[in-house]
Design a protein around this nucleic acid. Structure first.
Lengths: 221, 221
DNA sequence: AATGCTATAGGTATTAATACCTGTTTTCAT
DNA sequence: ATGAAAACAGGTATTAATACCTATAGCATT
């Protein structure tokens, strides 16, 4: 019996834990590694003797999201089979992902059986796409690559940003992380530098736009 | 052994299936019913002999989302224990949910153990809030906000907020509006007071959540 | 061994933001 | 026309944020 070794990359712990259980009910599937964001995946790939047959990659993550992770991966040769996870697809996103060489797509709102099926198909044939998504590709258009390369934030910096978004002051962040306020200032300065923002207001917007901090657009005011 | 009978309401099948497996690893928890949206839950409740101890309710769903479902439920008397699932909470959302009488909150990015723990606590005590969310409430000055949550912002204040979101300092805003920096400060103080925010970071998030400032979250469209 | 990156943290300044006052003028609805 | 908001603006503080420095320890890579 060949076991497919799967690596899950998703920031939602609950989702990750759930899908892991789901997959491991199958005899031929084994979740061997997990990562919470793209950076962790890249680190994983660097570890010696790392081996995986297939990567389930979530698109929306802090630190290094799915798209950026793919771009990063494709800077070097690799033969990874990657199935992308997203809660919503549209045509240009699909095209972009195809362009980045992914092997399959899965909607987060999908039957467990379809997930299993997609994994097996990708493992066997190297590529699998279901009918709904195929339909999207039929009317294919070319898209221009307009990806600006911005400096990636470290996970510590991402942590500080999240706390900044929660209205914590430098001092409060320092207490929360058990480090000196000066260190937090250092992180904040690097954050402003990397993101090109002028002040905290800009950082908050940056965080929201890069899925590091989620907001609910409320219908009640 | 008392089994807690759980009903899961979530549109993401994968998530639902995952969390079901997770919960059923516990001896005292049993997932007896599932629904994909609020309407399905309402239908379930209408079926004779329907019985559930606790409902896990996702907020973002098609057809009838979590908030609307709660509103609908509260039109009639009921003694349901409801734990809300969301990927992100903010102050006004928490307020709204408390108002709708929910018994607990869970972040989707949460450890499985916390989920189990919350379910048990709610089942035992009827209500449970974990420390992270408590902290959020403290940070956002929920109590202060309760008193004056119906205070509306003036158009001048809204104007200042927009400029704050554009990373302008008080001085720059003053120049832009041809008024004194002191006046801008006055506006800003009223804004913090009315919105119950601690600082600019909070105001930016408030602005985005209240559709006063648009952000571009998706990288591709 | 040398390099570079990250996280750590202190020094010294300046500028901005926040808090709590005071007051006048303008605007607008009753 | 009168009273209540709203917009305006100054006084005086304190605290926080930002802008430059420097520096060291840990760690991985070359």
């Amino acid at each position: 019996m060949i076991k497919h070794k799967i690596t899950i990359v998703d920031d939602e712990r609950l989702f990750k834990a759930g899908i892991k259980l789901l997959l491991e009910q199958e005899d031929d599937i084994q979740v061997t590694h997990e990562a919470s964001n793209g950076q962790e995946l890249l680190d994983l790939l660097e570890t010696p003797n790392f081996e995986t047959d297939l990567i389930l990659l979530d698109l929306s993550m802090p630190v290094l999201d799915g798209i950026d992770t793919l771009t990063e991966l494709n800077k070097n040769e690799h033969d990874l089979k990657i199935i992308v996870l997203s809660s919503h697809y549209n045509d240009s996103l699909i095209l972009k992902l195809l362009d980045e060489g992914v092997s399959g797509f899965l909607a987060k709102n999908e039957n467990p059986e379809v997930v299993i099926h997609t994994i097996r198909k990708v493992a066997e044939n190297g590529f699998y796409i279901n009918d709904d998504i195929l339909k999207l590709i039929r009317n294919r258009r070319l898209i221009a690559k307009t990806k600006e390369s911005n400096e990636t934030l470290t996970s510590r910096e991402a942590e500080v940003i999240t706390l900044m978004c929660n209205e914590l002051t430098t001092k409060e962040i320092a207490q929360q992380l058990y480090i000196s306020p000066r260190t937090v200032e250092g992180h904040r300065n690097r954050i402003l530098e990397k993101t090109g923002c002028k002040n905290i207001a800009g950082v908050v917007i940056y965080a929201i736009e890069h899925n590091m901090y989620e907001v609910n657009i409320t219908k009640f005011r």
